[in-house]
Amino acid sequence: MQTDSALSMLAALAHPVRLATFRLLVRHEPEGLSTGQLVEESGLTQSTFSTHLAVLAKAGLVVSEKRGRQQIQRVSINAFRDLMLFLAKDCCQGRPDLCEPLLAELTCC
């Protein structure tokens, strides 16, 4: 992953509505949620929420797929994984034992 891509993703997540939306979508993987469900959950108007969703999509964190008459939003697991790997790649300077607590916390839940 390039630094510019990571910065774009981190900037997209650096807003309370977008971060909450992303975390909600992570909890609903792999089925995703409809745009209407996300709007309802956010408490925002459709147009305001669409702006936030567009930022997440432009950063590559959220993908949309049409199912019947609904637009289903899902997290791009590959982009999420790439961002996490980018952030942790040089973790602990090659000493995996120092990263074990982080990994254990990720796998416990």
Results as ranks from 00 to 15, higher is better:
63 V>Y: 08
60 G>S: 10
94 G>L: 13
102 L>W: 05
85 L>Q: 06
22 F>T: 04
66 K>P: 01
87 L>N: 04
39 V>G: 02
2 Q>Y: 02
91 C>E: 09
64 S>E: 14
38 L>A: 10
30 P>L: 14
13 L>K: 07
101 P>F: 06
58 K>H: 11
35 T>S: 05
62 V>K: 04
21 T>P: 03
76 S>G: 05
55 V>C: 07
17 V>W: 04
16 P>G: 12
59 A>Q: 05
28 H>G: 03
103 L>T: 00
54 A>W: 06
54 A>D: 14
57 A>R: 15
3 T>G: 00
50 S>L: 07
30 P>R: 11
66 K>W: 10
97 D>R: 01
58 K>W: 08
49 F>I: 04
23 R>L: 15
57 A>K: 15
100 E>K: 02
63 V>T: 06
88 A>R: 01
97 D>T: 01
37 Q>C: 03
14 A>T: 05
63 V>Q: 07
106 L>A: 10
37 Q>T: 05
98 L>Q: 08
99 C>M: 15
16 P>V: 15
67 R>I: 04
18 R>N: 14
15 H>Q: 13
52 H>R: 05
109 C>N: 04
78 N>D: 15
50 S>T: 03
30 P>V: 05
24 L>E: 15
23 R>F: 14
39 V>E: 13
57 A>E: 15
104 A>V: 01
51 T>Q: 11
95 R>C: 05
108 C>F: 07
56 L>K: 02
91 C>W: 04
39 V>I: 15
34 S>P: 01
59 A>F: 13
62 V>H: 10
31 E>F: 13
53 L>M: 12
79 A>Y: 08
55 V>H: 12
4 D>I: 09
73 Q>H: 10
58 K>M: 07
76 S>V: 02
53 L>Y: 13
3 T>I: 05
60 G>T: 07
58 K>L: 12
29 E>N: 08
81 R>P: 00
36 G>T: 05
92 C>P: 00
51 T>P: 00
74 R>I: 09
90 D>Q: 04
72 I>L: 07
97 D>Q: 06
42 S>N: 05
10 L>G: 03
80 F>Y: 06
35 T>L: 09
90 D>P: 00
41 E>N: 13
100 E>Y: 03
84 M>E: 03
40 E>F: 03
91 C>A: 14
14 A>W: 09
107 T>K: 11
80 F>A: 11
59 A>G: 05
96 P>V: 08
1 M>S: 11
14 A>S: 15
